[in-house]
């Protein structure tokens, strides 16, 4: 399970991509589980009012079930112009 990071999530997590270990992956059944895990590990993520999560290039609701091979993306809005 790979988590691609965009915008300010790169700065918060301190990486371009996050690889989740097998132990962690086994615990994460849904997008909601993933969100809770990420905000525990990186509390500053919780400050983001809007953070879209995509699974396999599709916007994902909290209830979506995750698979081991999924590619996840954390997408905050950006405002620059």
């Amino acid at each position: 399970m790979t988590v691609l990071l965009f915008g300010v999530t790169k700065d918060i997590i301190g990486k371009n991509t996050l690889m989740l270990s097998d132990i962690v992956k086994d615990k994460l059944k849904t997008v909601q589980d993933l969100k809770m895990y990420l905000t525990q590990e990186y509390p500053n993520l919780e400050n983001l009012s809007s953070l879209a999560i995509a699974v396999n290039n599709e916007y994902a609701d909290d209830s979506l079930l995750l698979k081991q091979t999924d590619e996840i993306a954390l997408i905050p809005p950006v405002s620059g112009g």
Partner: peptide, 25 residues
């Protein structure tokens, strides 16, 4: 539909304060 709630200015940096490579825009 993508970003339901407006972030506060302090949450997310903008170009004036945090930089952008010239060619990106």
């Amino acid at each position: 539909c993508l970003f339901p709630t407006m972030p506060a200015d302090s949450e997310i940096p903008n170009c004036n304060d945090n930089g952008v490579l010239g060619v990106i825009p």
